[in-house]
């Protein structure tokens, strides 16, 4: 799963498989981070707007 684990080999199979995996994890992570950050920003902005 990680390059420092016993089974890890830098071969085409591992690169494709874990490439796909980390790509998917990356997208999900980035997407969720964006959504949460944006939601927090929106919330703060909204409360500021409502106070003004």
């Amino acid at each position: 799963m990680f390059p420092f684990i016993f089974e890890w080999v830098w071969d085409i199979g591992h690169m494709l498989f874990f490439g796909g995996f980390w790509y998917a994890i990356g997208i999900l992570g980035a997407g969720m981070t964006y959504c949460i950050a944006k939601a927090a920003y929106d919330t703060v902005k909204e409360s500021q707007d409502s106070r003004h």
Binding site: I27, G31, C35, I36, A39, A40, T43, S47
Partner: peptide
Amino acid sequence: VPFFHHLAHNMHGTMAIFAATGAFLSFF
């Protein structure tokens, strides 16, 4: 809760990316 409201809204907005990833994962 405003945060939740916004979160839901934003997630709806980005759902296509998640759905695409989901389709990719599901295929495999």
